[in-house]
Design a binder for these strands. Structure first.
Length: 470
DNA sequence: ATGTTC
């Protein structure tokens, strides 16, 4: 099926004015008319432009028509003169751009409080590693593009030595039962309750995403996503599962809601920008009022994407556990790109965590290191000053571009060999040297979480990386 | 992050 996208260049050629209608037209065509051919889409847009009045009552095209008839931009929403308070953990290791972004976020009229995690770096809107509590509003870019990006760790009863003596089998199963790459789909589809959810029928925009979601269920995507075998060491005698302290084989995965979540994020960010015109330098922080239809829709779609991401992890783990004949002893999992309704100083707020691990009192989570550095099983301390959050990893110290330019394949191989790690796929932009020291990051958040165990990667699979091949 | 865009 054709997937037509109308770009800005096309709109200019047709004669659309560069007012809010520009963005609206792109979003509506993408959301509801991508099945049309390019010619049909252009024809339709021309007809609306020629006679907007004829389309104002159209439930879908009406927004385009209205904005053509009323081409003046709605007034800009003003930021607070005085920001709400925020805290920063590990300030010495955080780049200036990330600080600037949280500084902007706490000036939103809906902001209640903020916090910056020690792995923070610059992103779109809210920085990665940014936490923001808002009043009755949700910021799509406060959640991020990969809605429900999360960690899942299965602790298994397999003998630790098998990871060394029978590594080839682990490599083989990991290769057969995971799928990586942007757009990756399984040929054979699996049924899952998440695909039966009513949101796929009730929300018009989400309806179009069902087919993609069904094909991508149980895939991992690209970027920093991984599935890996490794050694779990439980250090806390009083752990939640009554596991004897010691070593276990673990399966750890990191991925999100794939194309479906990305489309939801893109769509509702555009919609938020139309409905919530902020000053240009903070426009990515556009928010949706939860009392509006758009806000409610995003909330439902976001939760669906979160559950879908979870189902992806569970399918990956189910297949690998079955393939290795293992028994599941314990599982720890958490979203780190999401928004939750939580209590803050006696009031219900929307807590956005964009690259941050929920760390309410007694809440378990996983904070990964890098492909050669340990990850940590943590128990939250419920620290209010961090909005009950912790870092979601070590955080980058090098951009992808910089890592590709400065780390050599020989260096990557040497560090993998030094740590006894087998890497399937992967690229220089994900090399350990591109990340901060996880020990330093953990040391910056001892008020936020306690460590109850760690995970050392041994067999790692990631998407093929490096510079684009074509 | 996503099979790519103001």
């Amino acid at each position: 099926m054709a997937h037509t996208k109308i770009g800005g260049k096309t709109l200019l050629e047709i004669g659309y004015p560069q007012t809010p209608v520009f963005r609206t037209a792109m979003r509506v065509m993408e959301a509801d008319f991508s099945h049309l051919s390019q010619e049909e889409a252009i024809e339709l847009l021309k007809k609306i432009l020629a006679d907007p009045a004829a389309y104002v009552d159209d439930p879908v095209l009406g927004t385009i028509a209205e904005q053509l008839l009323q081409p003046v931009a709605p007034p800009e929403i003003e930021l607070r003169a005085t920001p709400v308070p925020y805290t920063v953990y590990g300030k010495d290791y955080i780049e200036e751009g990330a600080i600037r972004q949280i500084n902007n976020a706490v000036r939103l009229p809906v902001a209640v409080a903020g916090s910056l995690m020690p792995d923070a770096h610059q992103g779109y809107g809210l920085p990665i590693g940014g936490v923001l509590a808002a009043e009755n509003a949700v910021i799509p870019y406060g959640v991020g593009v990969d809605i429900g990006c999360r960690m899942c760790l299965s602790i298994l009863d397999l003998p630790e030595h098998s990871l060394y003596t029978n590594e080839a089998a682990y490599v083989k199963e990991l290769t057969s039962h995971t799928k990586f790459g942007a757009g990756a789909e399984w040929k054979k589809r699996e049924a899952d309750p998440v695909l039966e959810r009513s949101e796929f029928k009730d929300i018009r925009f989400v309806r179009n995403l069902l087919d993609k979601a069904a094909g991508q269920l149980g895939t991992s995507g690209s970027g920093n996503h991984f599935v890996e075998w490794g050694i779990v060491t439980i250090t806390d005698i009083n752990n939640e599962w009554n596991l004897a302290p010691g070593n276990y084989v673990g399966l750890l995965s990191h991925s999100g809601s794939r194309g479906m979540g990305a489309q939801i994020a893109g769509h509702y960010t555009q919609l938020a920008k139309e409905l919530c015109p902020l000053p240009k330098e903070v426009q990515h922080l556009a928010y949706l009022d939860l009392d509006t239809e758009a806000g409610q829709e995003y909330w439902l779609a976001m939760n669906l994407a979160g559950d879908y991401a979870s189902a992806c992890h569970h399918l990956i783990h189910k297949r690998l556990i079955k393939a290795t004949g293992a028994t599941l002893l314990a599982r720890i999992e958490n979203h780190h790109n999401f928004a939750w309704k939580e209590m803050y100083q006696g009031k219900e707020v929307i807590v956005h965590r964009k690259g941050a691990t929920p760390a309410g009192k007694g809440v378990l989570g996983i904070i990964p290191g890098s492909m050669t550095a340990p990850g940590f099983i943590v128990r939250g301390k419920g620290e209010e000053r961090s909005l009950q959050s912790a870092s979601h990893g070590a955080g980058r110290q090098m951009s992808r571009t910089k890592a590709l330019a400065s780390i050599t394949p020989q260096e990557l191989n040497a560090v993998l060999q030094e740590h006894g790690v087998t890497l399937i796929g992967g690229g220089l932009d994900e090399a350990p040297g591109a990340y901060k020291n996880i020990s330093t990051v953990m040391a910056s958040q001892t008020d936020l979480v306690e460590v109850i165990g760690r995970f050392i990667p041994k067999v790692v699979r990631m998407a093929d990386g490096g510079p684009p091949e074509d």
